Amino acid sequence: MNLIVRRQFYYNPHSYELWSAGTAISCLAYIIGVSYFELSFTNFYLLSFLIIVQLYFWICNQYEVFEFDQNSFKYRFLFFKWKMRLSSYQVVGICYDKDPTSRFPEKENSECLFLQNEKVRFKILKSNWELEKYEKIKTYLETNFPENNSIKKPFILFKFTSDLTLLFVLFFFFTSILTLGVYLENPKNTKIENFVYIESTLSSDSKYITPKGSNYIRIKLVKYPGYKFMLFENGIKELRKNGYATKFYKFDTIGFLIDKNDYEKSLHSYSDYPYFTSHVKNKKEISIKGIYYKDKYILDQYDYAKGNSRNEKLWFLLPCLFAVIWVISIFSNKIKYTNTKNLTSSKSE
């Protein structure tokens, strides 16, 4: 006799009301962004917000399928399928923080089913289930499989929050698309024809900026008011290595080599940046690739290019940020084993 149990990926009694509200908010944000802030109809952030809201609620309302027979267990969700040979099970008592974000979290006791053969392959956490469905699975296992407590339990066990995990995955996916797009649209420029020379006097003293990320020197020119010309860490190191000063003063005449794309697309708006780059590029900030000062080049574009990455602001760290936050959230939901099994009813979260 087979047992098939279906469970909503993330159950919320007000799911469809929240879906409608989320759709309305994302559509309103899109309309305001396009009409008031004059963003493009194809703006990546606006479109991503619309798609993420729809994907999130659609996935949350899909059903996971748990299928048991006399010697196997199958799990299906959307396009994912997984099967294991099932020979025994364990029932273990567990304890975890009810609210990991609280300073003094309250402990909650529950139990967990381990599906196993030579080792534990799958876990079913009671507090993540409606009590009736959990008890149905437990009764089926007790009737058709032996309980084997001799198989080693997983050393580390975590309590996943399905809705939060889904959000992290969606944000990671879309930021990865943006990052990959920026990377592919910006190959490393080392040829002289990819640079343009500009010259002007400084409208103020240069300023050394030390944010939490990479340090840089900010320079403003009389000829290009409103623009910030920025020399990043690799260029600063190159100047210091060759014994040149990194401070420039008001009314000094200075020449810069800048990327041809910045000259044409930022300073003069002859054309637009590629699609993904336009979403992360501030047109008022121009990266310095070479410096001509006091009748000589004190920063050569070829030397600078040797250590200059495709993107000085390291946009590839953006998806990594979501991955790190997700890992931290997982480790904050660590489960501890207890000696006794807790059989109190627990509704799905």
Rank of each mutant, 00 (worst) to 15 (best):
M1L: 06
V5Q: 04
V5E: 09
V5L: 13
R6S: 12
Q8G: 11
H14C: 12
S15T: 10
Y16C: 09
L18D: 05
W19C: 14
T23R: 00
T23K: 04
A24N: 03
I25T: 02
I25W: 00
I25L: 04
Y30F: 10
V34A: 09
F37C: 04
S40F: 08
S40H: 07
F41W: 08
S48H: 06
L50C: 11
L50S: 07
Q54P: 06
Y56L: 15
Y56M: 15
F57N: 06
F57I: 05
I59T: 00
Q62A: 06
Q62L: 13
F68R: 01
F73N: 03
F77I: 01
L78R: 01
F80G: 00
K81D: 07
M84D: 05
R85H: 12
L86K: 01
Y89Q: 05
Y89P: 02
I94T: 05
C95G: 08
D99Y: 09
T101D: 06
T101N: 04
R103E: 12
L113C: 07
F114L: 13
K119T: 15
R121V: 07
F122C: 04
N128P: 14
E132F: 04
Y134S: 13
Y134P: 08
K136V: 15
K136L: 15
F145P: 03
E147G: 10
E147H: 08
E147S: 13
N148Y: 11
P154W: 01
F158C: 05
T161V: 12
D163T: 12
D163N: 11
L164G: 07
L167C: 12
L170S: 09
F171N: 05
F172G: 13
F172Y: 08
L180Y: 09
G181H: 00
G181C: 02
L184E: 08
P187G: 01
K188M: 08
K191N: 08
F195T: 00
Y197G: 00
S206P: 13
P211S: 06
G213S: 14
G213D: 13
S214A: 13
R218G: 00
K220W: 10
L221Y: 03
V222D: 13
Y224G: 05
P225D: 09
G226E: 03
E233Y: 11
N234P: 03
I236H: 02
K237L: 14
E238M: 07
L239Y: 02
N242K: 13
F248T: 04
K260C: 02
Y263R: 00
E264V: 00
L267Y: 02
S269Q: 14
Y270S: 15
Y275A: 02
Y275N: 01
N282Q: 06
K283H: 09
K283F: 07
S287C: 06
K289L: 11
G290T: 05
I291A: 07
Y292A: 01
Y292K: 08
D295N: 15
D300L: 14
Q301N: 05
Y302W: 07
E312F: 10
W315R: 03
C320V: 15
F322C: 10
F322M: 04
W326R: 02
I328A: 04
K334F: 04
K341W: 09
N342C: 14
S345G: 14
S345V: 06
K347E: 11
